[in-house]
Amino acid sequence: MDLSNKVVLVTGAGIGIGKGIALHLAACGADVIVNYRSSEKQALEVVEQIQAMGRKAIAIKADISSVKEINAMIEQAKEAFGTIHVLVNNSAYCPTIDFFDVTEESWDEVLDTNLKGSFFTAQACAREMVKHGGGKIINISSVHALLTMTKYAAYASSKGGMNALTRQLALDLAHLNIQVNAVSPGATEVEKNLAHPLHDSLAVGKQIPAGRIGMPKDVATVVAFFASSASDFVTGQVLTVDGGSSTQFYLKSVD
């Protein structure tokens, strides 16, 4: 997937799936804006890895639950690179909270980041994309949009909304040559899992038809397809990357 001369913004790119996406798109030739919310150190490490590939990269701090911070991030990106060709809406907040313990504040924090933030980041980037004849928006959804577990009320709701948002944006932006698609990962090995004392990637992998847990690269390669010209006639689609987990009737929750 050739992304040479493309400028890509990946939200939540300092860790996890976002980091994997940022590195893979850089390997495909893109220059990358690494958005982060909390850890500048982690974001700068991603920037250094991208620069070591011979690509340009910068880190920009912004909490995408705030439209003001989104707009400031886009202005910084324009100052550094002139425009944005591809947006990957990856930033997400995923707490596990018992149904009766969900508060208005915890609900809003999830929906403001995962859904509101994705919409307004897409809106801001699309304004830049139309200036050069089109672009690509890739939303990172989740299998929780369709098949979920207990304690994910706000998160699952936000990702169900993400799938609907993907279809809506695809319709609204098709005439502007902006394709909008989503990637829906299943269980994926990321830093927060590795740090969890009860997490066992082998145990999780045994429950997945493919025989292993997913890796960020598995998601990133699909994102690269949606970001490239190979997907110019594909829009409004949600592609699940879960090793076949969603084909099963039952998947045991692993805390």
Rank of each mutant, 00 (worst) to 15 (best):
Asp2Phe: 02
Leu3Gly: 04
Lys6Cys: 07
Lys6Arg: 15
Val8Tyr: 07
Ile15Trp: 00
Gly20Glu: 08
Ile21Tyr: 07
Ala22Ser: 09
His24Asn: 14
Ala26Glu: 02
Ala27Tyr: 00
Asp31Lys: 00
Val34Asp: 03
Ser39Val: 07
Lys41Ser: 12
Gln42Lys: 15
Leu44Lys: 13
Glu48Thr: 08
Ile50Ser: 10
Ala52Lys: 15
Ile60Asn: 05
Ile60Ser: 02
Asp63Phe: 01
Ile64Arg: 14
Ala77Phe: 00
Gly82Met: 05
Thr83Gln: 14
Ile84His: 00
Val88Pro: 01
Asn89Ala: 14
Asn89Gln: 06
Ala92Met: 05
Ala92Ile: 04
Cys94Tyr: 13
Asp98Gly: 06
Thr103Met: 08
Glu104Val: 14
Ser106Cys: 13
Ser106Val: 11
Trp107Arg: 14
Asp108Ala: 10
Glu109Gln: 15
Thr113Lys: 12
Gly117Trp: 02
Ser118Cys: 07
Phe120Asp: 10
Ala124Trp: 00
Cys125Phe: 01
Cys125His: 02
Glu128Val: 04
Val130Ile: 15
Val130Gln: 04
Gly134Val: 03
Lys136Ile: 00
Val143Asp: 00
His144Pro: 01
His144Asp: 15
Ala145Pro: 01
Leu147Gln: 15
Thr150Tyr: 08
Tyr152Val: 15
Tyr155Arg: 10
Lys159Asn: 03
Lys159Ala: 11
Lys159Pro: 00
Gly161Tyr: 04
Gly161Ala: 14
Ala164Glu: 01
Leu165Lys: 08
Leu165Arg: 05
Thr166Met: 06
Thr166Ser: 15
Gln168Thr: 14
Leu169Asn: 09
Leu171Gln: 08
Leu171Phe: 10
Asp172Trp: 02
Asn177Pro: 13
Ile178Arg: 02
Val180Thr: 05
Val183Cys: 10
Ser184Ile: 04
Ser184Cys: 12
Gly186Ser: 10
Glu189Trp: 12
Val190Glu: 13
Val190His: 15
Glu191Asn: 09
Lys192Trp: 12
Lys192Cys: 14
Ala195Asn: 09
Pro197Thr: 14
Ser201Gln: 09
Leu202Ser: 13
Val204Asp: 13
Pro209Met: 08
Arg212Val: 08
Ile213Gly: 13
Val219Asn: 01
Val223Thr: 02
Ala224Phe: 02
Phe225Ser: 07
Phe225Ile: 06
Ser229Thr: 08
Val234Asn: 07
Val234Glu: 02
Leu239Ser: 02
Val241His: 10
Gly243Phe: 02
Gly244Tyr: 06
Ser245Pro: 00
Ser245Leu: 15
Gln248Gly: 05
Lys252Ala: 15
